[in-house]
Structure formats: C-alpha cells, structure tokens
C-alpha cells in the first residue's frame, strides 16, 4: 500500500548561511494493507520528517514514494489533494482548525469533503466523539478552546472519520489518559483488521508493542558519516 524507495531529504537554510542539513539518505521500506509499522529513533532522527514526506507536506530531494497507485513524489498538487481526501489520512500532534467551527463539523469535515450525506457524516462524527468520550455539551463548540487531551481526541476522531486505506499517526496516544488510550488503540486495531496500512510514531512503548507489527529505526536512514 505504501512504498518508499531510495528516499532522500535535505533542508537548505538559505537565510542561515545556506547551511544544508541532510536528514534522510536512501530510506526504503514498504507497508502492506492491514500492517502497522512503527517508526523509531531518537528525537531529531527524522521520524516526523518521514511522516511528513509520506503526506506530501515535505518535499523529498530524491527517491520515490508510492501510496496505492499514486506516485506521491511526482504528483501534481491536485492529485495529492485527491489522495488526501480519499486514500491517505494523517493524525498530527496538533489540531489546526478554522476558528468558530463546531467540533462536530470539524470531525465530519473529511466525510463532507468526500460528498457523504450530511446526516450520515454527522452520525459517524457523533459516534466517534462518543467513543472518545468528548462530552456532548462540547460538540457545538469550537475545539480551539479545548484542553490538550481533548484536542488530541478530536484530531483522532477526525482522522478516523473516513476509513482511509493508508493512515499516518503521529503520537496518537500522547497526552491521553489510560481509558482514552485504550479506545485509540482499539480504533487502530479495528483499522488494521479492516486492511488499513498504518505508519505510526509511538513514544509509548506499550502502545507500540501492542499495535505495531514491525519497527523501523529511522536513524539507519541517516547519512553515514563520511
């Protein structure tokens, strides 16, 4: 479902003396449907960079990324947008929303963007918010004022609203209490059972061991010291 070949990524900081930072060199791996791969490596090793390249958020300097039958690294912006709408979900660590939009709509939005009927989309959103224990009294409010853990759960609900065939999870269980963590882990397990290919970053070792089938150490993709 997801395949990465010979991926390289450097950051050129033009305004800081043009220094070039190489993060990835020759990264390669693939993820099959129904499989969950955990990216590991210490802070700064490039885990989030890999995730962001997979989502088309960062531009790769070389190599190929394929999601389903789309070659992300060569796709036009509108093809990437279509891919994100239909095939590829991303739960980031931070929720970014238009102020004033109610939580329920934030969660239903990926479905509405796909043209799902409003009542079905809202029903699915309500179902997820209930499972993730966001009190019903908060549904009509904008999540911008929510606590960190609540925002994280709204973000997860949004990411799981549509069943994307490929899903990227950046620390989905960080800042969650044990009950909610359990809910998120079972959502991940359900997605896997439904054949979703998942790439995740889990600092939480217990969570990683429970849902991940394989671990990939991102620091092995770093440029070897010459």
């Amino acid at each position: 479902m997801i395949s990465v070949e010979n991926l390289s990524k450097t950051f050129t900081l033009h305004n800081q003396g043009g220094s070039v930072i190489s993060v990835l060199d020759g990264a390669a791996f693939s993820v099959a449907p129904g499989e969950c791969v955990a990216l590991t490596g210490e802070s700064g090793a490039g885990k989030s960079t890999v995730m962001r390249i997979l989502y088309g958020n960062y531009l790769a300097q070389g190599g190929r990324v394929r999601i389903g039958d789309v070659t992300l690294t060569e796709a036009e912006p509108r093809e990437i947008l279509a891919l994100r709408r239909e095939m590829l979900g991303y739960v980031s660590q931070f929720l970014r929303v238009v102020p004033r939009v109610p939580t329920l709509e934030v969660v239903a939005e990926p479905l509405l963007a796909l043209g799902v009927a409003e009542e079905n989309a809202l029903a699915r959103a309500k179902d997820l918010l209930t499972r993730l224990r966001i009190p019903e009294t908060l549904w009509s409010l904008s999540p911008t004022t929510f606590s960190g853990g609540e925002q994280q759960r709204v973000n997860i609900a949004r990411g799981f609203a549509h069943r994307y065939p490929a899903l990227l999870l950046d620390e989905p269980t960080a800042s969650l209490d044990p009950t909610n963590r359990e809910t998120v882990l079972s959502l991940i397990e359900e997605a896997k059972a439904a054949g979703v290919a998942i790439v995740g970053i889990f600092h939480d070792k217990g969570a990683r061991e429970r849902v991940a089938d394989r671990e990939i150490d991102v620091s092995s993709f770093a440029r070897r010291a010459a």
């Binding site: 950051f11 962001r52 088309g56 958020n57 960062y58 531009l59 912006p77």
Partner: peptide, 14 residues
C-alpha cells in the same frame, strides 16, 4: 508554487 501546507512548512526558495 505548491501545495499550501508544503510551501509553508517546507519552503524551498530563500
């Protein structure tokens, strides 16, 4: 030019 989030998060030009 590019996707909005890509240009803002990983700008290439100086």
């Amino acid at each position: 030019t590019g996707l909005t989030d890509q240009v803002l998060d990983d700008p290439q030009a100086a």
